[in-house]
Design a protein around this nucleic acid. Sequence first.
DNA 1: GACAGCATACATACAAGAACGTATCTTTAT
DNA 2: ATAAAGATACGTTCTTGTATGTATGCTGTC
Lengths: 207, 207
Amino acid sequence: MRRTKEEAEQTKQAILEAAINVFFERGVAKASLEEVARAAEVTRGAVYWHFKNKVEIFEALHEKLHTPFIEQILEGLEVDHPNPVEQLQHICTTLILALEEDEQLRKAIQLFMFKCDYSGELAFCKNRFNVKKQEKLKAFEAYFEKAQRQQTLPMSADPRMLALSVNCFIRGVVSEYLDSPRQFTLKQDVPPMMQLFFKSILQPAAS
Amino acid sequence: MRRTKEEAEQTKQAILEAAINVFFERGVAKASLEEVARAAEVTRGAVYWHFKNKVEIFEALHEKLHTPFIEQILEGLEVDHPNPVEQLQHICTTLILALEEDEQLRKAIQLFMFKCDYSGELAFCKNRFNVKKQEKLKAFEAYFEKAQRQQTLPMSADPRMLALSVNCFIRGVVSEYLDSPRQFTLKQDVPPMMQLFFKSILQPAAS
DNA sequence: GACAGCATACATACAAGAACGTATCTTTAT
DNA sequence: ATAAAGATACGTTCTTGTATGTATGCTGTC
């Protein structure tokens, strides 16, 4: 039962889509390809036709879902803004708030954060992941350096340290929210939290 | 070959110790009890004698390693301190810095954070963990409320929001560090980061 | 205080199922 | 016709849980 090329591509996407859900519900390690196949309404034969094994599926998912996230941060650097730090605050806040509406994105990030472990087969995935993170950190730094050039951030500030802090804080917020969403409401709690955090950056050091 | 009670307790601890390493290297899901047994230099018989299954081992590890962490925070509340917020900053900083020296603790936390997924069998573990987290959050809040009573924190501050922020920031720092330790040096980077963060709390709101 | 009898602390053996990867069909586009 | 796109079938490996074996520590009893 050979399908047309379009149909084949459709089933491939269906498999990826199904993989998100199955990985999400059963965890990457415990999810079997049989389950993925069933969820996509095909057999394991189809899965093995399109992908070499589970790892390859995982990689495909990562490529598809994680990449666009970082690009948004990089784009903000291109735009001219009178106060880059406030701009960064705004971008970060927006990105986090987006989680509330996009369930698929939520699932995906939860996958990469909690539903898999990067030992063994997935170890090299972690490396690729870290490369992306370095880019992100450099982008954060760039915001602060830009702000220093524009005199909206004192020269005494340490861009690298600020970038690290922002990165940690964001990761913490996202982790905590995805870990137990009932803990706080994004729309209500995140803006003041971000406000609090960035306030300390914008105000020159005291005491 | 029955052992004395002390010896039995020793092997139990040896199994837990071994489990940390095996879980860490292979991931919780993929680690087999056979591997754990070998690492502890016993057979699966011993493992099944002391524990019902892998989940019970996991729980035991959590009980053993995660609990003392929280208690330290609670203890600080008992002590009298002129400035509870600074006290909290100091406690948190110390706790994080401890990671640099205690490899076993590092491994354990990495386990709970990255090397397992809480789907399926471990789902209810997550619930128990969340209960603990609630306690922790309440403790954080208590610090801030205490500070308000002692007039070292403005009444306009929102203890719950501050507690959430602290919790997120700490989680972020710990996550980032354990995820890629080469990214920053605890001793050098964490104190200023914490300083930056808590500064925004201690200084009354502006702008 | 010694010894029978039992519980303990494991080791070994076994059965059953899951999951994987591959090899072999089937059908149908191209 | 032939190769793509899958389905089906098969053998193997891992792992799990349990059942059973066994040597030894402990405990009460006389």
